[in-house]
Design a protein around this nucleic acid. Structure first.
Lengths: 248, 248
DNA sequence: ATTTCTTTGAAACATATGTTGCTTTGAGCG
DNA sequence: CGCTCAAAGCAACATATGTTTCAAAGAAAT
């Protein structure tokens, strides 16, 4: 069990129909931004198609491929990343359960970045047609998606800022905080404790440093009693100090 | 004359009517992505309102302010930036002539970042209502704006990647290349030479290093004959070497 | 012209981070 | 069980970058 978190079924169980494990995280995330009716929820659950389980560190979309359909992360952590010719990779954003992978991007002819799983994941592929129809017919869903996207863009600005300004320690703490907070928001983590199915290589690619340095920083954080990380389980021990260290 | 580039009047002198110096850079930029009819161009020129000249390093929108209307850069260079409580600033994106400052952002209640001029600028404020009507009635314009935005997002990903992966030299060269290329695309620079009305402090905030280090890197680039920069005028002397150094 | 201020240039030293190479641990697997 | 391999931990050294400080050069103002 690599990165699979607590609750499997989580509430709304649709009778026999299409799996709602799918609608689960997505509707929970949209529900953070806009109230959804029962019809909305039902429509969302209809999106379920081509659900697959994918092992860690697998490409879902490779850089340079033509743009096809969208993805939905159901379980685990995936990431957008850019890979340079040199082999160096930079992670642009984390995709957590309930994250719908930018349909707008499909308007680009080709992906200028890739998407890969970091942990073991459960993924659904969403056909663009179904998604567009949903947006056209369900205003609440459309609004929720728009707001979710704005939130993602804001997060991307914060990510960029951290990369430019902060020291490695701060950047790493921000990643920890982001994962815990966002997982918590959809009920997949406690307030200060949750799954963190990332290798140190993944973390390095998130914060733009070498793996060795990630390890150094991690040891420091452990020694100072700020953080406990063991076997993909993360605990934030000093939330106040952490929030101070990792900037506003 | 701080940052105003070569041409003061730049051709198109508007008779008495609504200034078309405004439609100029905007329609030229949109025209890169989609063909525009005469009617489209006329409609675009109608957007002209509240044009102002702003001195270098002035805030147009401050972080935390409520979201109001959009901006259009007519002349000069402005930037989106984030300012930390520590005082450190990180520039997220450059706004060049013809750049329309993200209308979608207005859906956020408050700006999570600021916008400031870097050089002397000519700026127009665009009322949201007029913009939305234009989008509703002129499909070509709407499409152009969408594509322009996708382009900006792609640029933002590249910016983030450079910040995470490259050395300071590479990052600085990317900024140079971006300014020259984009200015060139709207006819405000030659292929390998153009205005660069940025101080070394601005550059440092772009690439996430100290001012001193920017200076060091600049000297190196000059010594190696890669670049010539004197009084806001930039020349790229070895385009091939530059493209190699600054990564794909 | 003289002053004042911003921008640029430059040196010396402190530190964060990269690199290389090796060891230890732990998970999966025959 | 012991094998194998990826992940984690760790040390020593090299380098990129930060910090502080000061001088020189331009630009704007009087």
């Amino acid at each position: 069990m690599t990165g699979l978190s607590g609750q499997p079924g989580t509430g709304l169980r649709p009778p026999p129909g299409p799996l709602d494990g799918m609608a689960g995280p997505l509707s929970r995330r949209l529900g953070l931004h806009v109230p959804l009716s029962g019809d909305d929820l039902a429509a969302l659950s209809q999106l379920a198609v081509r659900e697959t389980v994918v092992v860690a560190h697998t490409d879902l979309v490779r850089q340079g491929e033509p743009a096809e359909n969208a993805f939905l992360v159901l379980e685990g952590i995936a990431a957008r990343y850019v890979q340079r010719a040199s082999g160096a990779r930079q992670i642009l954003a984390l995709l957590l359960p309930g994250d719908l992978c930018d349909p707008d991007l499909a308007h680009l002819e080709r992906w200028d970045h890739g998407i890969a799983t970091l942990s073991h994941c459960r993924i659904a592929r969403v056909p663009r047609a179904a998604l567009e129809e949903l947006i056209a017919t369900r205003p609440a869903v459309a609004l929720g998606l728009r707001r979710t996207k704005l939130e993602a863009e804001a997060r991307s600005r914060a990510w960029l800022t951290a990369l430019g300004i902060g020291l490695a320690t701060e950047r790493l703490l921000r990643v920890f905080r982001e994962v815990i907070d966002r997982m918590h928001a959809v009920g997949l983590a406690e307030r200060n404790e949750g799954p963190l199915p990332l290798t140190q290589v993944d973390m390095a690619e998130c914060i733009g440093t070498s793996t060795v340095h990630v390890n150094r920083v991690l040891q420091d954080l452990r020694r100072s009693g700020m953080v406990e990380l063991k076997g993909n389980r993360l605990r934030l021990l000093d939330r106040a100090g952490l929030d101070a260290l990792s900037g506003e």
